[in-house]
Write a protein that binds this DNA or RNA. Structure first.
Lengths: 134, 134
DNA sequence: TGTTGACCGCAAGCTGGCTTGAATTCGTAG
DNA sequence: CTACGAATTCAAGCCAGCTTGCGGTCAACA
């Protein structure tokens, strides 16, 4: 038995047991056995969980993440879909960059009201263009 | 009276009237008058709303956005805070980039299971380092 | 052979960000 | 003057993503 107890999975992944159960209900991960009532997991589950954590932090929904996880292991379905998601991420990165620039400007600009500052306006226009593109 | 009717604000900003009312309750924007019951807004509100839209799409909470909005107009409080938020954004951008690379790889890599692929592992390790840094 | 403490299932609750519904109030057009 | 349509308040509802609480079960340790 080289399975991991749910306790170990929690410790190593940073997720709570209840979150793991929730993910199991949602079809994101599977437990492969029980010891008594306790769920046992394959070690590879840790990597899946790492991917889930990454996706969550990137703002993906569990539904999105499930699609990505289903792809590998099972016959590869949505090559285009993945590229599309990557494109979404590129757009999001552009937006975040614009917002970051705006924040740094707001922090440093000496203008009385930022809404009166020329550079601020420019940043806003740029950011809005990004938003419009979705 | 060069105030904008809520209808115009909705059309130009893309927010619904109910969302505007919600933002008002939450202290993000103010209406400056009424015509009958109808709220009237200053034109500058549109720019604030644009900033809100940008922040929302970047994943900020309304609470965060309110802090940023309060800064300008009122005596400048949190210069450091804004830079800190900008730093957060930089970190988030790094994560998103890592995830984007991972997705593109998953889409194109011919390996049977991605969890068995060397490059995938490397990407994951990189991504996890980012996560750990928060 | 107990007792303990971690996990179980299930249902209910919680937070954030709005939307929806019902009853009401106006400005405007006819 | 009346009727219409759009906006109002307030409460309730909804969705995602979990957490919390309860009574129950079991492996392990004494």
């Amino acid at each position: 038995m080289k399975f991991l107890d749910i306790r170990e999975v929690c410790e190593k992944s940073g997720f709570t047991a209840s979150a793991l159960r929730y993910y199991e209900d949602a079809g994101l991960v599977q437990s492969v056995a029980r010891r008594g009532l306790r769920r046992q997991y394959e070690p590879s589950t840790l990597k899946q969980l790492a991917l889930i954590a990454m996706g969550r932090r990137a703002g993906f929904s569990l539904r999105d993440i499930r699609q990505i996880l289903n792809k590998n292991g099972s016959p590869g379905l949505p090559r285009d879909t993945l590229h599309a998601k990557a494109d979404e991420l590129d757009a999001q990165i552009a937006e975040l960059s614009a917002l970051r620039d705006t924040l740094r400007h707001v922090a440093d600009c000496p203008a009385r009201s930022h809404f009166a500052c020329e550079r601020f306006q420019t940043l806003m226009r740029y950011a809005q263009r990004d938003v419009a593109r979705h």
